[in-house]
C-alpha cells in the first residue's frame, strides 16, 4: 500500500521532469545543464539550502492545512484568500497599534492574522457543510474577491503606501527570525502528528473523514468536527502568512499570494497526504523555487520553466499509475 504510493509519487516527479526537459529542448537549451543548475541553486551551497528550506516552510504549512481539511471532505482551495486576509490583518493591526510595546503588537498581529485566516477558511466550509454548496466554487470566488480587496486596501486605504510607483502597503516594523519560524514549524508538525495519532480529537477527525454517515449514526458530533478541521486548516494558513509577512515580506504587494495558492495542495497530493510524504513534496517545491533564482542568472532558460514543471508534477501526481484493483487481482488470489 505505502510502497505503491511512494512509487506513484516518484513516477509522477520523473515524468514531470522529463516533460520539463522536453520543454527546455524545445527552447533550444540543454535539459541536463538546466537541471544541474536547478540542483546547484537549491542544494549546492549552504545558502542555497537555507533558501530551499525558507521556501519549503510555507508550502509544508499549507500542505498540512490542505490535508487536515481534505480529511473531512473539505477541499481547501482558498489558501490564496486566507493568506490575503491574514496579511491584511497584520498590516492593519500594525498601523493601528503604532507606539505600543513591541511584544504586544506581535501578539496582536499574530492573533489577528490567525483569526482572519480562519474566518476566510470557514466561509467555503460553512457553504459546503451548511448549505451543500460546492466549496470549490465558493473558494475560487473568495480567492478573486480577496485579491481585489487586497489591491484596493493597499492602494486606497490607511495602510496604502503613498507615493510609490506600484501599489503596496506600509511596512510592518516588527519581525520574526528565520530560525524561530523554522523551529515553530517543526514543533507544529510534531504536535499535529501527535494529536492525529494519539488523541480523541484525532480519532474523531479520522472517523468523520472516512465515513461521515457512520460518525453520525455513532453519535460523534460530525458537524462540529468538520468545522474544527476547517478551523485548524485556517489556523495553519494563518501561521504560514505570519511567517511570510513578519519573516520576509513585511509589505503586502499586489498578487503576492498568487504564486503560493495551489502549492500546498500540490505538495499534499504528491506526498499522498502522508506526514513524511508531504514534507518531501514541500521540499521539492521549495527546491524548485530556490533553484529557479540561479537558473535565470546562469542560463537563458526562463524561470517560468519551474512553473511548468510544477504544473506537470501536479498533473501526474493526480494519476494512480499502479491501480489498486489490478494489484488485488494479482496479489489477492
Amino acid at each position: 500500500m505505502r510502497n505503491r504510493k511512494v512509487i506513484n509519487s516518484v513516477l509522477a516527479i520523473m515524468i514531470a521532469f522529463i516533460m520539463g526537459g522536453l520543454m527546455v529542448l524545445l527552447s533550444g537549451d540543454s535539459p541536463l545543464e538546466t537541471y544541474s543548475v536547478l540542483l546547484k541553486g537549491s542544494f549546492g551551497s549552504l545558502n542555497a539550502l537555507k533558501n530551499t528550506i525558507r521556501y519549503s516552510i510555507p508550502v509544508v504549512l499549507l500542505a498540512y492545512s490542505f490535508s487536515v481539511c481534505n480529511q473531512c471532505g473539505y477541499f481547501n482551495i482558498s489558501h490564496e484568500s486566507q493568506m490575503y486576509s491574514a496579511s491584511l490583518a497584520i498590516v492593519m493591526v500594525s498601523e493601528l497599534t503604532q507606539g505600543w510595546p513591541s511584544w504586544l503588537r506581535l501578539i496582536l498581529m499574530m492573533a489577528a492574522a490567525c483569526m482572519a485566516s480562519i474566518a476566510a477558511c470557514m466561509i467555503p466550509a460553512a457553504a459546503k457543510f451548511g448549505l451543500g454548496v460546492s466549496e470549490v466554487v465558493v473558494g475560487v470566488m473568495m480567492n478573486y474577491l480577496m485579491a481585489y480587496l487586497t489591491k484596493h486596501m493597499i492602494a486606497f486605504s490607511f495602510i496604502a503606501q503613498p507615493g510609490s510607483s506600484s501599489i503596496m502597503s506600509l511596512p510592518v516594523s516588527e519581525s520574526v527570525g528565520a530560525v524561530s519560524i523554522t523551529v515553530s514549524t517543526v514543533v507544529i508538525i510534531l504536535l499535529y502528528q501527535f494529536v492525529m495519532k494519539k488523541t480523541i480529537p484525532g480519532y474523531r477527525l479520522s472517523v468523520v473523514g472516512r465515513n461521515p454517515l457512520f460518525a453520525n449514526a455513532s453519535g460523534l458530533p460530525s458537524m462540529r468536527i468538520m468545522l474544527s478541521s476547517a478551523v485548524v486548516g485556517g489556523l495553519l494558513t494563518g501561521i504560514c502568512a505570519i511567517g511570510e509577512m513578519l519573516g520576509y515580506y513585511h509589505i503586502i504587494y499586489s498578487d503576492f499570494a498568487v504564486d503560493i495558492g495551489f502549492n500546498g495542495m500540490t505538495a499534499a497530493l504528491l506526498g499522498a497526504q502522508n506526514a513524511i510524504g508531504m514534507l518531501l513534496g514541500s521540499l521539492l517545491l521549495g527546491a524548485l523555487k530556490s533553484g529557479s533564482v540561479l537558473l535565470t542568472v546562469v542560463t537563458s532558460v526562463p524561470a517560468e520553466l519551474v512553473d511548468c514543471v510544477k504544473g506537470f508534477v501536479m498533473f501526474f501526481a493526480t494519476v494512480t499509475f499502479i491501480r489498486s484493483d489490478v494489484w488485488m487481482r494479482k496479489g489477492g488470489k
Binding site: Y203, L213, A215, A217, G219
Partner: peptide
C-alpha cells in the same frame, strides 16, 4: 442501533476493528 446499511452507517470499512468498536464510546 444495528444499521441496515452496515457497509456505510454501521462501520468504517477503511478502519481497523479497534477503531470500529470504540466509536461513540471513545470518551
Amino acid at each position: 442501533f444495528v444499521s441496515d446499511d452496515r457497509m456505510t452507517e454501521g462501520l468504517v470499512l477503511d478502519g481497523t476493528i479497534e477503531e470500529n468498536v470504540i466509536a461513540g464510546n471513545e470518551c
